[in-house]
């Protein structure tokens, strides 16, 4: 098998280079030049304050937001959300929020989410005002299943971590010492589908609702 793949690899590269009228790879200097290139693509103009734009675009995608004054208020806000949605006293909470004091009668765990999980709470890396999107990265502190399995996903966003454009979010990822997360999830509201007669229906496979707690700067 490996042999076939190697032969195929060579054949494909041969075909590509012959199509490009080259006999071998590009010269090293040219390759280094290409790799060093930092693209500057057009970014759609924004004329709003980042927070306002994020809220507007996120809400336009059926997400909901709530402002809280400090990190300490997260458990109470989640409890209010839970009660409002009439969910059981249970949540999968990312370990990044482990230190918070969760209600005593809750079952809180920090492991991956299974099908029985109805509510999860995550801390996001950043939010992108351009499209009203949250950026979450897989780690021990933030399992990917929390983002997709439960019906209700509450995401904590530090107001200071809202950026204008995707490119700024990528810059944050590049600065991380641990490099790219295994999975980087850019999430713009609840899961949706329009596969039955173009009718938009929320809650296709992922969360039915995504609620953001914006922690003031």
């Amino acid at each position: 098998m490996m042999q076939t793949t190697q032969n195929s690899r060579d054949a494909i590269f041969g075909a590509i280079r012959s199509a490009l009228k080259r006999s071998g790879p590009l010269p090293d200097a040219r390759r280094a030049e290409l790799d060093a290139n930092v693209p500057q693509h057009t970014r759609p103009a924004q004329d709003e304050n980042l927070l306002e734009r994020f809220i507007r675009t996120f809400e336009s995608r059926a997400g909901t937001v709530q402002h809280i004054a400090s990190r300490a208020e997260i458990p109470a806000a989640v409890e209010a959300y839970r009660a409002n949605m009439n969910l059981p006293h249970r949540a999968a909470v990312g370990a990044a929020l482990k230190d918070l004091i969760w209600p005593a009668d809750w079952q809180v765990h920090h492991n991956r989410a299974g099908t029985e999980e109805l509510l999860s709470v995550s801390l996001c890396i950043a939010a992108i005002a351009e499209t009203g999107s949250l950026m979450l990265g897989a780690s021990a502190d933030s399992p990917t299943t929390h983002n997709f399995v439960p019906d209700d996903h509450v995401v904590v966003l530090e107001a200071a971590s809202i950026v204008g454009y995707f490119e700024e979010a990528w810059a944050i990822l590049r600065q991380r010492s641990e490099g790219m997360p295994r999975a980087t999830n850019i999430i713009s509201g609840p899961s949706r589908t329009a596969d039955v007669e173009q009718t938009i229906q929320l809650g296709a496979h992922g969360p039915r609702r995504v609620h953001v707690l914006i922690v003031a700067a």
Binding site: T131, T145, G179, A183, N185, P190, G206
Partner: peptide, 21 residues
């Protein structure tokens, strides 16, 4: 739409400390 709901970037398999993937 301005964006689709999910844009996901996958980089390699589950890491030692990951809980899923």
């Amino acid at each position: 739409q301005e964006t689709e709901t999910y844009t996901t970037i996958s980089t390699g398999p589950r890491r030692a400390t990951d809980l899923d993937g």
